[in-house]
Design a protein around this nucleic acid. Structure first.
Length: 432
DNA sequence: GAGAGCTGTCATTGG
DNA sequence: ACCCAATGACAGCTC
């Protein structure tokens, strides 16, 4: 099964990425870019259209239907073949997802929203819901997995995690994520159960993400806010103010241009396509969600802005409830992710510190034990020496008759003023 | 295949 | 009441 899948995926990759005749997918992609038409309700549709157009033409009707199987058990899909499967084909999901017909999109969205089930109760089951995805490829069974299945997290720099959250998670405080229609957030045309596993797989297949992000960044992913020119304005400043973003026709891509390392790597994409491809980090689940919902500001701001600034930022845009819910979830998850990282770091540092302190105390204890032994030896030696001196003094003492004193009957005692007296033991007992 | 380690996420708690 | 940081617990993934 795995081998068969890898084979199939390999073919798909050829179809998807082998298009450019010059051998440079990036350049071909870029050159093929065309002014964007407003994406309308399908935020991601347009952005992903051009880059994979050829491939999609080839398989638009069956791309998604063809890439994943309905038959493999959900839990099974998490298996070892996931890398081959998702690494090569899943990332293309975001791309291929959009060029397809509205009907297919609706199906995808349904799939997405369906697949947003809460992880905790039954992650497997929730992932398994992907079975409802209308993608059946060439009648071949394959893991069904959403993009979010392949990756999660709202973080800016780190990998991903299992899906959860808001949209799919009723507990997550994102009520709008269920029963999503086409325009709703998490119904974002983006499958929602990407796992860390696949995220890492994407690292091995950066082309997929790269092309997706590329499409989004440079082909008017935020069609509502940006003009088609934005996709071609490679030399533009990366940052964009929210207000300017609101102005139609401005050539800016606010969402991810502003992102940390990821953003910069994307900016370099055209100058050094191959290098940046391999270096690019995959988009996280929340990033892709944000793109799908056309969130008009960068993840970095969503997560890092102080609450006041964040709220002010939100007031600068007219966001739907779903967008607001997503943004707040992204913020919550992003902050918590950083907090968890810091917490673990502190935990490790604490453990390291305690181990170091333990070692130090053990050394100190050993030293004190050794010192005690030395003191005990010295004390024993001094006691012996004192006994010898005592006996010697006694041996020189004589009574009126010139007879020596018996050490058993007398003892020498010293008074505070330094005087020494010979005291009979009988008197000692009486004094006591 | 089991287990350790890593990571993201959620729930909870306290400031 | 709300926000936030910290943290335990859980689950998925990689090695």
């Amino acid at each position: 099964m795995d081998a068969a899948w890898q084979e199939l995926m390999a073919i798909t990759e050829l179809q998807e990425f082998g298009v450019p005749s010059d051998g440079s997918y990036e350049s071909a992609q870029y050159q093929n870019m065309q002014p964007m038409a407003p994406a309308g309700e399908y935020g991601m549709v347009q952005p992903h259209h051009e880059p994979v157009h050829a491939a999609c033409e080839l398989s638009a009707a069956n791309t998604y239907e063809g890439c994943y199987s309905e038959e493999m058990p959900a839990c099974h899909r998490l298996g070892s073949n996931a890398e081959a499967t998702y690494g090569s084909s899943e990332p293309q999901l975001g791309q291929r997802m959009f060029p397809i017909s509205p009907h297919t999109q609706s199906s995808l969205i349904n799939m997405s929203s369906t697949n947003l089930g809460h992880r905790r109760p039954n992650a497997c089951l929730s992932r398994g819901l992907g079975r409802h995805m209308p993608w059946t490829t060439l009648g071949q069974s394959a893991p069904v997995r959403s993009a979010d299945d392949l990756e999660s997290d709202s973080g800016l720099s780190l990998g991903s995690s299992p899906p959860l959250a808001s949209p799919d998670n009723p507990v997550g405080g994102a009520p709008g994520y269920h029963n999503l229609d086409v325009g709703t957030p998490y119904g974002d045309c983006e499958p929602d159960s990407m796992s860390e596993h696949t995220r890492r797989a994407h690292v091995n297949y950066p082309m997929d993400y790269q092309s997706q992000a590329h499409s989004y960044l440079h082909s008017g992913g935020h069609s509502s806010y940006y003009s088609p020119q934005s996709s071609l304005s490679l030399s533009q400043p990366c940052g964009m103010t929210p207000r300017s973003a609101k102005q139609p026709g401005l050539a800016v891509t606010p969402l991810y241009n502003d992102m940390t390392s990821r953003g910069s790597s994307q900016r370099n994409m055209f100058s050094k396509p191959q290098a940046s491809i391999s270096a690019r980090a995959p988009l996280s689940r929340d990033e892709r969600r944000a793109m799908a919902l056309k969130i008009p500001f960068p993840m970095e701001k969503i997560i890092n802005l102080p609450v006041d600034d964040f709220n002010e930022l939100l007031t600068q845009y007219t966001l739907t409830d779903n967008q607001l819910a997503l943004v707040r979830d992204i913020r919550r998850r992003g902050k918590n992710k950083v907090a968890a990282q810091n917490c673990r770091k502190r935990k490790l540092e604490s453990i390291t510190h305690l181990e170091r302190e333990l070692n130090h105390l053990q050394v100190q204890r050993d030293h004190l034990v050794q010192e005690r032994l030395e003191f005990q030896c010295n004390l024993a030696f001094i006691k012996c020496r004192l006994t010898d001196l005592y006996k010697e003094v006694f041996s020189h003492l004589r009574d009126e008759d010139g007879q020596p004193y018996s050490i058993d009957e007398y003892s020498l005692q010293q008074t505070p003023d330094g005087s020494i007296y010979l005291v009979p033991h009988s008197m000692e007992k009486r004094d006591q």
